[in-house]
Design a protein around this nucleic acid. Structure first.
Lengths: 128, 128
DNA sequence: CCGGATCCGGGGCGATACTG
DNA sequence: CAGTATCGCCCCGGATCCGG
């Protein structure tokens, strides 16, 4: 999933290593944005795995787990394990993750305001 | 494709019809954000197909064509054909498309500023 | 309770070749 | 010049089983 190029292009946005494309590859995966949102709403508190799953209807255990590990790997989410039986695992956004929430929130705002127009455009296209 | 549970709860962002998820499904496709960026930079001028292709290294004709048609269908891009031989097709952002450029630009800014941190986090994870 | 391992289908995406 | 058609790979993401 995570494409792993090495040198990050920082000048040309259309460089194959374009940071925006790479970011969208991550944020665009199905569950990432929702995980970030839930964790952002809970911040600075932690959220347990099961609670996260409960708050994101439709996500499978596998995908939630995979998504979280990707985010941890990217340094956007911190993971804390309580060494008890049964184990308890807690997640929270790092500062980096929190800073990402800002632009993501703006995208959400745009979506809420304008998706209806997109739907209308599609409906019009279907007519033709 | 997507099952339609019922009327979308207009409050709940985690509804299966969540507008944010749907927007990200579109914007997250590989070439969309770059097409929008090129057209936004050219705005309010139009850009021809070949010029668009030239400015987006790596894109195939097929994917550029597909991406553009999706955007047209969504009402984000307008298409104008000059009925000459050989044909000339011009594209430009609609107002809706232009308004999307704003939050997208902020995502780009975030990406430029922070992708290096993400890369470092990944490198650190590779060590372990 | 948390999540790794495996199997599998569908769709995004690319390469190439062909039309008007 | 600007597409469309076809083929096929890859990998996301869902279901299920299992392990600590």
């Amino acid at each position: 999933m995570t494409t792993r190029p090495k040198g990050a292009g920082r000048g040309d946005l259309f460089d194959p290593e374009c940071p925006t494309r790479r970011l969208l590859d991550r944020v665009g995966t199905k569950w990432t944005s929702m995980v970030v949102k839930v964790l952002a709403e809970a911040a600075p508190d932690e959220v347990r795995f099961a609670e996260l799953k409960r708050r994101i209807p439709g996500v499978s255990q596998k995908m939630l787990s995979t998504t979280l590990h990707s985010l941890v790997r990217d340094g956007l989410v911190a993971r804390r394990v309580e060494p008890v039986v049964p184990p308890r695992v807690h997640y929270r956004l790092t500062e980096l993750g929190l800073s990402l929430e800002t632009p993501l929130a703006e995208l959400r705002t745009w979506a809420e305001r304008h998706m209806a127009e997109i739907d209308r455009a599609n409906a019009a296209a279907d007519d033709a």
